[in-house]
Write a protein that binds this DNA or RNA. Structure first.
Lengths: 184, 184
DNA sequence: TTGTTTATTGAACGTTCATTATAATAAATC
DNA sequence: GATTTATTATAATGAACGTTCAATAAACAA
């Protein structure tokens, strides 16, 4: 397989460090150190730390939606769709270290500091909600179920940082199941 | 009324700044600046920034549980309890600026750095869950409904940062309503 | 009222922060 | 073979970081 370019290694390493420790907590030097490159290598590809963060978020956004899109069941009914969506989100987190949502953290750390980062983070959530609302329209499910699904997904992300994933997963599926009960 | 001591002012100001911008993003100097005191005034009362953070979290923990405790309805049935709990949590956030959960942020920023802060943050959530499970036992509600309620609360906290509170609130209450539907 | 503790001050500490300068090469492309 | 693109190492930048010094003011006790 093709060797990853330095730019890609920087993006991946920085994303991991930011996700684990936070944006302000991770210094540029610690990224350079872990990748094993000189400062100018990073500044050649990204003109600042904040630009690096923006590119990380862009990549992550695509990766997340690709992951979700190929995992959900849009062919059956709302019931199956909801379960497959929650399952996909849980699986995403399992590959990711259970440390919350990077977009939410970005928004919290850069609100009032960098408007582009703030906007991207907000957009990520509204894009998710819009996508779900579009999907479930196909099943003639009421639009309000979309917000409820996102709320459950956000609850999972949050609780996975504290409780066992098994327990979090179970209660999320219980909630989804009662959503259906409503529509019968 | 009694004038607030410098110590209290430092605690309140720092809590506000930390909540708005994050722990690592807020420097000691900016706290001192906003309070209007010299460095040693802070270091006389708190031997380090991290000790200050610990005391802030302790106070917040008490304030939150006092607020919830006096707002919930433990006399009726699970239905009213759940609604009053969600309502209380929503009201708490309305007074607080909608910037997520300070304990979750503390855990994210100090995991692997300060174990006391990490532990306090985890404990905050498990204490909440235990309290709810104890409460709903009184209504003979299944224990698993406790995790579901916390999941909804966490979902609210997360989504309130992005969407209008009105919409978040509505979908949370919808979810609670379908929980009941299950037990009928 | 004097002596002692408690609380507070402004300046300075050494370190780390993100970023740039300099200057020399490698590697890829034309 | 010439030129652009990508990378190296070292050092320095000025600002901000958390923290401490030494002096003093205020509160309190004898």
């Amino acid at each position: 397989m093709k060797a990853a370019s330095k730019k890609e290694v920087i993006l991946n390493t920085a994303e991991g460090l930011f996700y684990q420790h936070g944006f302000h907590a991770v210094g540029v030097k610690s990224i350079l150190n872990e990748v094993g490159v000189a400062p100018m290598t990073m500044y050649y590809h990204f003109k600042s730390k904040e630009v690096l963060i923006i590119e990380i978020l862009k990549r992550r956004e695509m990766r997340y939606f690709d992951f979700i899109e190929e995992a959900i069941d849009k062919k059956s009914d709302f019931n199956y769709y909801a379960k497959s969506l929650i399952k996909a989100h849980v699986d995403w987190m399992k590959t990711d270290g259970f440390n919350g949502c990077l977009f939410l953290r970005a928004k919290q750390e850069y609100e009032g500091v960098n408007e582009e980062i703030t906007a991207m983070s907000k957009d990520h959530k509204t894009t998710l909600l819009n996508k779900i609302e579009r999907d479930i329209k196909f099943f003639n499910a009421p639009k309000t179920l979309g917000t409820q699904l996102v709320l459950i997904m956000e609850g999972i992300t949050s609780m996975a940082q504290i409780l066992e994933m098994k327990e979090v997963e179970a209660s999320a599926f219980d909630l989804v199941k009662s959503m259906q009960a409503d529509s019968e």
